[in-house]
C-alpha cells in the first residue's frame, strides 16, 4: 500500500499539487486520471521521489519515504518498478542488457540464473527472440513490453506506470493494460498508473483518482465513474463525441 498525505508542490510560485491525499491499494490497479497539466505526472514523480515535495509525506507500507536518507531511498527503490511514457530503455543496450541491468547491479545470481530470469520476464510479456535487438529496432508496443519486463525483473512490490498507452494503437493499448493488470494480481503488487485513456479506466481501473487543477477531485472505481455526479469528471469522461452519445438518453 502507498499513502500520499497532503502533498503540495509548486513551480515558480504556481501550485501544481494542492494538498493531495490518496491511498493506493495493494493487489489493485490504481489509476490517476485527469486532463493534461492536472498534475498527474508531478504526483507520480513525487511518489517515487524523483521530485521533492514542498509539503506532505509519502508512505510505503509503514515506511515514511519522505523522511529516508539517500541510502534508505535506494533500498526502497529496489522494490519499485516503473514504466515511463517513452519506455526510457537505455539506447546503447540491447533488450536483454536493459532487462538484466538491475540483476547485474544488485544481485549475486549466477550468469545462468540471470539469463533464466530475463528470459522468464520477456516471455511473461510475450516477447521472445528479441533479446539481442536494440531499442531503436523495436516498435512502440515492444518498447513498452521490454519496459514492463525490466520493471518486474526484481519482483517489485510497487509498480508505477506513466501513461503506458501513449502512442499505441487501441488494440496494443488493451494488451498492455491487461498485461499490467495480470501482473498486479499475479504478484500482489501495488500498481499506480497515470493515464487519460478512458478505455484503460473502464478495463482495469480497480481504483480511480481524478485530479483537477492540482487537487483530488474525485475517487472511486471504474464501476462508479460512469454514474458519478461530478461535472468536471463528467466533462473529462464524456469528452469524446462517441462517449457523449452513450451518455445522452435516447
Amino acid at each position: 500500500m502507498i499513502r500520499a498525505e497532503n502533498i503540495v508542490k509548486s513551480f515558480d510560485g504556481r501550485r501544481v499539487l494542492d494538498d493531495v491525499s490518496v491511498t493506493f491499494e495493494q493487489g489493485k490497479t490504481n489509476l490517476i486520471i485527469g486532463r493534461s497539466g492536472s498534475g498527474k505526472t508531478v504526483l507520480m514523480k513525487c511518489l517515487v521521489g524523483l521530485m521533492p515535495t514542498d509539503g506532505g509525506e509519502v508512505w510505503y507500507g509503514d515506511t515514511c519515504f519522505s523522511r529516508l536518507d539517500f541510502r534508505q531511498v535506494k533500498a526502497v527503490r529496489q522494490e519499485m518498478g516503473m514504466i515511463f511514457q517513452g519506455g526510457a530503455l537505455l539506447d546503447s543496450s540491447t533488450v536483454e542488457e536493459n532487462v538484466r541491468l538491475p540483476l547485474d547491479l544488485f544481485t549475486d545470481r549466477s550468469e545462468a540464473d540471470k539469463r533464466d530470469r530475463v528470459d522468464f520476464c520477456l516471455e511473461r510479456v510475450a516477447l521472445t527472440d528479441a533479446n539481442r535487438l536494440y531499442p531503436s529496432e523495436l516498435s512502440g508496443g515492444m518498447i513498452k513490453r521490454v519496459a514492463i519486463a525490466r520493471a518486474i525483473v526484481m519482483n517489485p512490490r510497487f509498480l508505477f506506470c506513466d501513461e503506458p498507452n501513449s502512442g499505441l494503437d487501441p488494440i496494443t493499448s488493451g494488451v498492455i493494460d491487461r498485461l499490467i493488470a495480470e501482473i498486479t494480481r499475479e504478484y500482489d503488487i501495488t500498481t499506480v498508473i497515470n493515464t487519460h485513456d478512458m478505455n484503460s479506466v473502464l478495463e482495469i481501473g480497480d481504483k480511480v483518482v481524478f485530479l483537477h487543477e492540482g487537487r483530488k477531485w474525485w475517487e472511486g472505481s471504474r464501476h462508479d465513474i460512469m454514474t458519478a455526479d461530478n461535472p468536471e469528471l463528467g466533462d473529462f469522461v464524456f469528452a469524446s463525441p462517441m462517449a457523449r452519445r452513450t451518455r445522452q438518453p435516447k
Binding site: 517515487v48 524523483l50 535506494k74 533500498a75 527503490r77 529496489q78 519499485m80 518498478g81 516503473m82 515511463f84 511514457q85 517513452g86 526510457a88 530503455l89 537505455l90 539506447d91 541491468l101 538491475p102 547491479l105 544488485f106 526484481m154 508505477f160
Partner: peptide, 18 residues
C-alpha cells in the same frame, strides 16, 4: 543530455542505481 530528457536517467535512479 538525451538520456536525461528521454527519462533514461530517471529510470536508472528508479532502479536504485547511482
Amino acid at each position: 543530455g538525451t538520456m536525461r530528457i528521454t527519462e533514461q536517467i530517471d529510470a536508472l535512479e528508479l532502479m536504485g542505481v547511482n
